[in-house]
Structure formats: structure tokens, C-alpha cells
Design a protein around this nucleic acid. Structure first.
Length: 472
RNA sequence: GGCGGGUUGGCGGAGAGGUUACGCAGCGGAUUGCAAAUCCGUGAAGACCGGUUCGAUUCCGGUACCCGCCUCCA
């Protein structure tokens, strides 16, 4: 059996992965709060986990892995969005969930086994909060229920902070009813116009952190194998989850391995609305950057390193995938991926290493295809982005589609070439060729004949214009 | 202030205490009427200072610079 090594934030070391139950390897990833399109950074943990799950299914069997990723569909940001737009909360969350699915599907990420919504687990959250109160880890104050961090000596362990240090830093919300400034909200009261549920503490709604503790326990049990998310969630979100879950289920251990991915930057800077470099996955797809190109770029940096999204990387990824697509066209994938791909992934999800292996498989397209598909690249039917979309460009033309233009051009060029060969005057042929290559077309002239190939940089409108001149 | 990440050849980006990462770009050659395609070949690195070692880009310590978290942003 392949030994998988993962860097566990909890222990700060890379260690061999030992499932609690090899018959059912269980993972939880913190999903999105559904009030808007997912931005590019949101995609990173999704892809990291997608690759991890593929690897685990390969090693332990497809039916022996349970992957849970939640939707947070009760949150003050959602309320704010509803208030700002006058729309119904449910309508917003449903729409955003559908967007999220569309966008992550486009990146080739498989859907998790369970995608629980917070609003469907309110009962479990209330029960968990009651348990925490009973066990002396939480208290009610002015309609709120707060977690008492001083009741959990381990608090701060995961993120490597001590409560006292954090208070010294003193950037915590001040609330007069808190026993300790670090205490965080498990339940808070709702106004009449805010979403709320009846509870022992009045009508209210859950705090953010309790959602993940309740949903993971409901679907995976009080202890499971791997919990992940962006490094920015390590504190406070994951720290608070640990506190809640460990105190509600003493001795259970909660998540065995914690996996945190580093952050994503854009052109060397943090992605932010104020810098104007903020964009969503959908923005990129709309700019005709293919989902698998985005996936390639995100997987080409190891998950524990800061990742920089640049246009240059997207261009390079596009060219490589284009080449691989041509290479594997009409090829049946090999039965299994190259062992070195598995080996690279087993070594703390070394996706750049796995991609390097792919580069060495150009002489074996079937193996390249099987290996690329293992990490979600070159998926069947994922080559839409390579196809010419001439109809969208010009409905006036005599040509029905771009392939027809290419065929006509090819014949015409062959004529011009034959004349040039006879007269030894290549000027006209060279001009035509220069025009076409200028429009991004690849012109191959060999003894066998002339071949015109579309490249990622082909400007169809320009080619069409040249064709009209040449064929007139 | 506290906690954490990064610094590798022109660019991107890994592994490994001593033997080629890999890709892109470049350069040389083959091929071609020509070539932007293809094929063959090829130069180029490890922020800085010190330590451990026979030997460090790889381990340890320090310095510098960049970045993130500590504000329910992955």
C-alpha cells in the first residue's frame, strides 16, 4: 500500500497518514459562505482537497472515503446582502450555491459526498451548545451563548497562540457580557427581521464556528481523519472548532490531521477589492480562461506555499494543456496513471512534482492522458475551450464555421504555393503566410502539403478577414 | 507587539546531505524555397553571514527583504 505523508498543522510535522478506519476515511473541508461568487482564492483549498480525495480513493478504494464540505447559509454577510438588494435570503443562498457548483465543476473538482447546509443542522447545533453549557464550557449572557476559552486549557494549541498573548495583542471584540475577551459566540439573538430559530435562549442564530463542529460530528462522527481549509482559518475558526468539538465530545480527538493551504496572491499582491486585483473564478472563465487552465496554474505551486496568480502563468498553462490535448487526441487512456504521479502526490500532495512527471510522458500519450486525468486535467469533454467558436464572431459570412474557412484557405494556399514553386517567386506566398501567422494561425508547409492549425492565440476574426481577401 | 509562510538558474517551480528535477524562454544544429511547427543538443541557480560535516542549495543559528494571520476573507 502506498504510504501517504501529510504535513499536519496540529503536530507541525510531516507524518505518515494512518486512517482511523481504512474502510471509511473521513474528511471535512470548510466550504463557502454563500452570498456571492467564489473568488479565485476560494478555489485553492477546493482543488487541494479534490486531489487529496482522488489520492485517498486510489489508495483506500473509491467507496472507502467520505468527503464533506459545508455551505454556510446563515451569516450576517448574507443578511446584509439581502437587506441591500431587497431579495429573499433563501433566494440568494440558493443562487449562490448553484453558482458555486458551476464554478467548481468548471475547475474539474468532483462534488463531495455530502454538502450540508448550516440551516439544516440547527437542531444539532443547539444540542451541542446545550452539551457545552452542561459541561461547563459555555455560558449564557444577555441572550448570547459564549464559549468560555478559559475552560479549555488546550485553547490556542492548534494555532500556536496563548490566550494571554492574544489578549496582549488586544484586537478582540469588546463585549461587556464576556467573561474573557477571547470568549466567542456560539449563539446570538436575532431581531425580528433577521433569520432566527427558537432555542432555549430565545429566538436566535448560531455563531459561525459551531456550524462546522455540529455538521462534521453529524456526518463524520466526533473524530475523523482530515480537516482542512485556508491558513487564514487556522485562527480563530479552526481553533474554535477544536475547542467546541473536543469539549462536547471529550476523548474523541476531533480531527486527527489538520491541513492548511497557504494564501493566493495576484501579481505579487494580496487579492483585494481596494487594489483592484480582486476577481472571481467566473470572471476568469468569462475571459475564456479555461477551467483546466486555472486548475493547472493552481496545482503548479505546492499547497503549503504562497501561490501567485499571474497572467503569464495562465498563458503558459494554456499552451502546455493545448499541446497535451493535441498529443492525446483520440487516444485511449492507459489503465493506470504513472506510479511516479502517485508517489509525488503521496509525498504531501506534491502537485508540482506530479506535473513534472506528466511533462516526461510526452512519448507515451496514453500514459500521459491517464496520469493527467488522475489529477483532474485533460478530462474527457473538457476541451471546449480549444474549439473555434466562429458563429459567435460573424454570422454575416459565407462560411458556416471556422473549420470551413481553414479548409478553403488550405486549398488556396496550396495553389499559391504551387505557382510560387514554379515561378521561384515566393513573395505572394510569404505575404499570405506572414498574415496568417500574424493572426495566430500555425502554418505548416511540408512535402506532404499545407496544414493550418489553430493555436491558443489565434484571432479568428483576423483569419476570416484574410480569408476573404485571399479567396476573392 | 504575538503567531506563521516565503527567498532556488532570464521566468515559473520541485525533490534530495554528495550523482540531470521538470516546464517556459534563450542558444546551437537538423528539417524546410523560407519558418512561428517538429526533432536533436545545450549554457544557466540556490538572498546574506556564521556553524555542524570529508562535503550543504539541502541540517542548525543569526541577518535582510517580501507576504499573511491575530478584524466571523480560503
Amino acid at each position: 500500500m502506498v504510504e501517504i505523508r501529510l504535513t499536519n498543522t496540529r503536530t507541525r510535522t510531516k507524518q505518515a497518514f494512518q486512517p482511523l478506519d481504512p474502510q471509511n476515511v473521513r474528511l471535512y473541508l470548510c466550504g463557502p459562505t454563500v452570498y456571492d461568487r467564489a473568488h479565485l482564492g476560494n478555489a485553492r483549498p477546493v482543488l487541494v482537497f479534490d486531489v487529496l480525495v482522488r489520492l485517498l480513493r486510489h489508495v483506500y478504494g473509491a467507496d472507502h472515503v467520505t468527503y464533506v464540505r459545508n455551505f454556510t447559509d446563515v451569516d450576517d454577510k448574507i443578511n446584509a446582502r439581502a437587506a441591500a438588494t431587497g431579495r429573499d435570503i433563501r433566494e440568494i443562498t440558493e443562487e449562490t450555491v448553484a453558482w458555486y457548483h458551476d464554478d467548481m465543476d468548471a475547475l474539474g473538482a468532483d462534488r463531495p459526498d455530502h454538502e450540508p447546509r448550516a440551516t439544516e443542522y440547527i437542531v444539532q447545533m443547539i444540542a451541542m451548545i446545550e452539551t457545552l453549557i452542561t459541561r461547563g464550557h459555555a455560558y449564557e449572557a444577555e441572550g448570547h451563548v459564549l464559549f468560555d476559552v478559559r475552560s479549555f486549557p488546550e485553547y490556542g494549541r492548534l494555532s500556536g497562540r496563548s490566550v494571554d498573548d492574544m489578549i496582549a495583542g488586544a484586537r478582540v471584540e469588546v463585549a461587556p457580557f464576556k467573561r474573557d475577551p477571547m470568549d466567542f459566540v456560539l449563539w446570538k439573538p436575532s431581531e425580528a427581521d433577521q433569520p432566527g430559530w427558537d432555542s432555549p435562549w430565545g429566538r436566535g442564530r448560531p455563531g459561525w464556528h459551531i456550524e462546522c463542529s455540529a455538521m462534521s460530528a453529524a456526518l463524520l462522527g466526533p473524530s475523523f481523519d482530515i480537516h482542512g481549509g485556508g491558513i487564514d482559518l487556522q485562527f480563530p475558526h479552526h481553533e474554535n472548532e477544536v475547542a467546541q468539538s473536543c469539549c462536547a465530545h471529550p476523548g474523541a480527538g476531533f480531527a486527527n490531521v489538520w491541513l492548511h493551504n497557504e494564501m493566493l496572491q495576484v501579481e505579487g499582491k494580496k487579492m483585494s477589492k481596494s487594489l483592484g486585483n480582486f476577481f472571481t473564478v467566473r470572471d476568469l472563465l468569462d475571459r475564456r480562461i479555461a477551467g483546466e487552465v486555472i486548475r493547472y496554474v493552481l496545482l503548479s505551486t505546492h499547497y503549503r506555499k504562497p501561490m501567485d496568480w499571474t497572467q503569464g502563468k495562465a498563458d503558459e498553462a494554456r499552451d502546455i494543456l493545448w499541446q497535451w490535448r493535441l498529443l492525446t487526441k483520440d487516444v485511449e487512456p492507459a489503465a493506470a496513471p504513472h506510479p511516479e504521479v502517485i508517489e509525488a502526490l503521496a509525498n504531501d500532495l506534491n502537485t508540482p512534482g506530479a506535473i513534472a512527471v506528466l511533462h516526461r510522458l510526452k512519448d507515451d500519450p496514453a500514459l500521459l492522458l491517464a496520469s493527467a486525468r488522475f489529477i483532474g486535467l485533460l478530462q474527457a469533454g473538457g476541451d471546449d475551450w480549444m474549439r473555434a467558436d466562429y458563429q459567435a464572431l460573424d454570422s454575416q459570412s459565407a462560411f458556416k464555421d471556422f473549420d470551413q474557412i481553414l479548409a478553403a484557405l488550405q486549398d488556396r494556399l496550396a495553389d499559391i504555393r504551387a505557382q510560387a514553386m514554379a515561378s521561384k517567386d515566393f513573395s505572394r506566398l510569404d505575404r499570405a503566410k506572414a498574415d496568417l501567422t500574424g493572426a495566430g494561425l500555425e502554418v505548416r508547409m511540408s512535402k506532404a502539403g499545407i496544414e493550418l492549425l489553430v493555436r491558443p492565440t489565434t484571432v479568428q476574426r483576423d483569419v476570416a478577414r484574410i480569408a476573404e481577401d485571399l479567396l476573392a
